[in-house]
Design a protein around this nucleic acid. Structure first.
Length: 270
DNA sequence: CCCTGAACCTGACCGC
DNA sequence: TGCGGTCAGGTTCAGG
């Protein structure tokens, strides 16, 4: 369930357990993720985790010699474990600390990744082309309007483009466009600055609300059962095809856009 | 520049 | 129970 809010929740959950801890070992059961886990990841051993940060949907674990870059893909999950627990089928990696705590990476579909860089993480090929963080002040009306004016593409695909802005996944793209009253297929250059302003607000609000909902999950972060669908009760259009719009009670429609399921209210979104 | 489709994988779910 | 088809929160790539 890795959307930006989930990754942020993950970050906040694991940080207190791992920050300033020294890595004892990195156990790799399956290196064949999206990209093979490089041997250099072992450079972490004996080093202290100085910072854990998030960039888009990437988690960065900084040590003195370099940074581990982790992506959860579609199905990745992280667990902080205190005692030895036999790994299950898709528990591919354990990063063990000297104090006995360890981070377990589980990813059934293996679309996730664990990479290593000794340069500034921003220069890594996965990160060097990324647009601004949606919750930062850099991402504002002026910025997005400049992008929407000069592009001629559907607004939904534009806001899901990580070169434009990071972290807006399929769920939140749908939700933000509903909140802003914009049709997902609307061509970006045909949207007024005023409406782009509401879209920027909507993106920020939807992500912030989801992070708060993620905070609920945080409480039982150690529960290895996880907590699926914690934000589900807040979804206004995603997954609600043929159900009634919460505003106008018309039927929510589903279409395909860029190979992704796209939900909208034909009456509220123009 | 923009869109489409395919690819990388496994599991869950649905209808028969 | 089993089988085949469809779908899934991400991202990159080739081709038109």
């Amino acid at each position: 369930m890795p959307e930006l809010p989930e990754v942020e929740t993950c970050k906040r959950g694991i940080e207190p357990h791992l920050l300033n801890q020294r890595v004892k070992s990195v156990i790799i059961r399956r290196p064949d993720l999206r990209w093979p886990i490089p041997q250099q990841i072992q450079t972490m051993c004996g080093k202290k985790i100085q910072a854990i940060t998030r960039r888009g949907k990437y988690l960065l674990f900084k040590t003195t010699p370099g940074t581990a870059i982790l992506h959860l893909g579609m199905s990745g999950r992280l667990f902080v474990l205190m005692k030895k627990l036999a790994p299950k089928k898709h528990d591919h990696v354990d990063i063990c600390m000297q104090n006995g705590v360890y981070l377990r990476f589980c990813d059934p579909r293996r679309f996730g990744a664990l990479l290593w860089t000794e340069n500034a993480a921003n220069e890594h090929f996965l990160l060097n082309h990324l647009g601004p963080e949606p919750l930062s002040t850099v991402f504002n009306t002026q910025y997005l309007y400049a992008k929407t004016c000069t592009a001629k593409r559907s607004i939904k695909l534009l806001i899901m483009d990580s070169k434009i802005v990071v972290g807006v996944g399929n769920i939140y793209a749908n939700e933000a466009l509903f909140q802003a009253g914009i049709h997902p297929k609307r061509l970006s250059h045909r949207i007024s600055q005023e409406r782009i302003a509401s879209l920027v607000t909507a993106i920020k609000q939807v992500l912030e609300r989801a992070i708060k909902a993620g905070g609920t999950t945080l409480r039982d972060f150690h529960d290895s059962q996880g907590n699926p669908g914690y934000f589900q009760q807040d979804l206004k259009v995603y997954g609600r095809a043929a159900q009634s719009c919460i505003i106008c009670h018309n039927s929510i429609k589903m279409i395909r856009l860029g190979q992704r399921s796209t939900f909208y209210c034909p009456n509220c979104q123009k």
